[in-house]
Design a protein around this nucleic acid. Structure first.
Lengths: 182, 182
DNA sequence: AGGGCTATGTAGCGAACGCTACAAGAGGAA
DNA sequence: TTCCTCTTGTAGCGTTCGCTACATAGCCCT
């Protein structure tokens, strides 16, 4: 009997790719297994049950997200908060980030409803993004910590408005904040 | 045979109450029917299929939300943007709004993924909230339209951060924006 | 060599899913 | 009265769900 030596570590990347494409809502064992080249039977064997599978998967995806942020970290800092915001919005509109974004709202919904594992993953991703953002603040910023949290709040609001088709509202809001130019 | 004369109109309020409590993710016909005092058979009879049921339900909930906003409309306008923001955040933290908020992230997730009906409902709710917010802007505000969109972006960002356990981040962000006081 | 232990395949369980076929009661129309 | 339409109940279809029972092939240890 062949032993492709499947483990959680080798499984998680392919599972992550599947949920990034198809979302968490319809993530049931058999499609997940097919995407990972194994069977539902083996997913249960390796993870115990579906809930821990999802929890570990969310943790893994949070790690992926952290890696993507690190990769996006430029060596030169922006000169102003305006530049900073512009860079981040450019980063978030990259196609590679779109799949993350769509999945992100699944995670937020789960976190808001209290589904086990979701809040932890969401919190970790936001904490990581906040740290990244603080590192991206202008060197001469009078209040990098507060400024990063301010930008963060604006960015997340803009992303949400964009997700529901209110991109224009967000754009005009950022304009009125004085942190974006037309 | 008794005819309790059930129609879409009499059904929708009870269906809405159910999804406000249990969310849209697990909203399947039989539990929905039980909550509405009927059977899955009759839900299909009245709505045709589940997709149109959900679509109509989302529209109805958008109407509920609009009504809640109207009810929250005070006759006196706030004097400053700061007051305005404070009032809105107070409004959003009312217990009656919590169920809406949890459901809201379900809707956002569906809208982001392109599930039929979700984007329309989300857009309608945001449009309505934006109009309400514009009406709440200070009478002497130099740019009510832009200011409302700016506040909107901040508020939605703060709500999202709150949903994932980053309330403190949002609070410090609002503080750094100069629109909130400690 | 033999006995565990780990990893896997096959088959299937009971439940829930969206939806449908069929019959039947109630009320109006002819 | 007789028929026809609207509304409802009962039963069940085929599918998918998470999960399990059981068998078995390879590996390591003694």
């Amino acid at each position: 009997m062949p032993q492709p030596q499947l483990s959680r570590e080798t499984l998680l990347p392919r599972l992550a790719a599947h949920v990034l494409e198809h979302g968490l809502g319809g993530a049931s064992l058999r499609p997940l297994a097919r995407a990972a080249g194994t069977s539902d039977r083996m997913l249960i064997y390796h993870f115990g049950n579906k809930e821990t599978l999802i929890t570990e998967l969310l943790g893994y995806i949070a790690g992926l997200y952290a890696g993507a942020l690190d990769a996006a970290l430029g060596s030169d800092r922006p000169a102003t908060r305006q530049d900073c915001l512009a860079r981040i919005l450019a980063e978030g509109s990259k196609p590679a980030m779109q799949a993350f974004l769509v999945l992100w709202w699944d995670i937020v919904a789960g976190a808001a409803r209290g589904v086990p594992g979701y809040r932890e993953a969401a919190q970790e991703m936001m904490t990581r993004q906040l740290a990244w953002l603080e590192g991206q603040m202008p060197a001469d910023d009078p209040d990098p910590a507060g400024g990063a949290r301010y930008l963060m709040t604006l960015i997340e609001g803009a992303l949400m408005l964009g997700a529901v088709g209110h991109d224009d509202t967000a754009q005009q809001g950022l304009l009125a904040s004085g942190l974006a130019s037309p």
